[in-house]
Amino acid sequence: MAMFFKPAPNKVTVPLMDELTPLAGELSEGSIAGVITTDLFSQNLIQYSSLAGALNAGVRAYYIDPSNGFSVELFSRFGEGEVLVGKVYSAGELVRALEIVEENSFVFVSNFSILGAGEGDVVGLRRLIDEKGLYAVFSQNTLELNELNLNAEYRRLFVLPELYEYLIVIRSSSYRGHYRLNVSLSKLPALHIKNVGEHSITVDEKAKLLMGE
């Protein structure tokens, strides 16, 4: 049933990554970020940085993936606290998983496109995330990306990109021991709309954590 409500200021927000915050801001309750990465370096940086950011903000964190994509040892380099890990193998199982997570929690879903979500599934996920006040990241690492038509890629991987507050592509590059993320910010909340476009971010400190240096 349709209803209206008076928006309230967000009291708790979660950073996707500290280095991205000046450009993209932070996730608020009931928001979804669709993040495409083109290499494992970028995927691991956004994954562990966002999970650590949630715990640092006092928010319970969940990691959901159809594969064995979470390393407790690696996460310990980024932050402290308990991440609850779950496995799902279909969009229906993801819906049921979100039904049992605690309200106002952070949820990182890796390999989202592999779950085979259709439009109805994504609308159902959107409803759950709104109702439970979740902070959600749907992520997909892919080696095949049409850089000339990112809008079509968002639709291919995330089905209904109109329902996401953030649409981001992250790629990594390195030169002589220095690391950068080349980031396409395609969709952002209105407060940060001026930063939609292409950016390059230095991530040397985060790279040291990932590499164990």
Rank of each mutant, 00 (worst) to 15 (best):
L74K: 15
Y135D: 10
T38K: 03
Q140P: 02
I46M: 12
V59C: 10
F78D: 05
I114S: 13
E102S: 14
V72E: 14
Y63K: 10
L20F: 15
A152G: 07
S139W: 04
I100E: 11
Y48N: 12
Y62S: 06
S90I: 13
G124I: 01
D39L: 12
Y154R: 00
S105W: 03
S113G: 03
L20K: 08
S139F: 04
A57E: 13
G118V: 10
S113D: 14
F106S: 06
V83A: 06
S42A: 15
L150R: 05
A91L: 07
A57V: 05
G30H: 08
F158M: 02
R126V: 02
L115Y: 09
L94E: 07
A52S: 15
Q43W: 02
F158K: 05
G58D: 11
A24W: 02
G133K: 04
S90D: 07
Y48T: 09
F158A: 01
E26W: 07
T21Y: 01
F138L: 13
T142V: 12
V83N: 05
A136C: 08
R156V: 00
I129C: 03
I32Y: 01
V35K: 00
V83H: 04
I36M: 08
D121W: 09
R127S: 13
V95E: 11
F70Y: 13
G30S: 11
E119W: 02
G133R: 07
V83G: 06
L98H: 07
I114K: 14
I32A: 05
S49P: 06
I100L: 06
S31P: 00
G79E: 09
L125R: 04
L94C: 08
S113N: 14
E147M: 06
L150K: 04
A152H: 01
G116Y: 07
N146Y: 06
T38V: 10
L98Q: 02
K132H: 09
G133E: 08
F138V: 14
R127Y: 09
V59Q: 06
L74F: 04
E99K: 11
E153P: 00
L128S: 02
E144S: 14
D121P: 10
P66H: 13
R155G: 02
R96I: 05
L45A: 11
N68D: 15
R77E: 12
E144L: 12
R60A: 11
T142N: 03
P66N: 14
T21C: 06
V59M: 10
V122P: 10
K87Q: 12
S90A: 07
F138Y: 12
E80V: 03
V95L: 15
L150D: 01
L115S: 08
F158C: 01
S139N: 15
L143F: 12
L143W: 09
Y48P: 12
A33V: 03
V101P: 05
P22Q: 03
G120F: 08
A97G: 03
N146H: 05
V72T: 12
Y154H: 00
G116H: 06
A136R: 02
E93V: 03
E99P: 02
S139A: 15
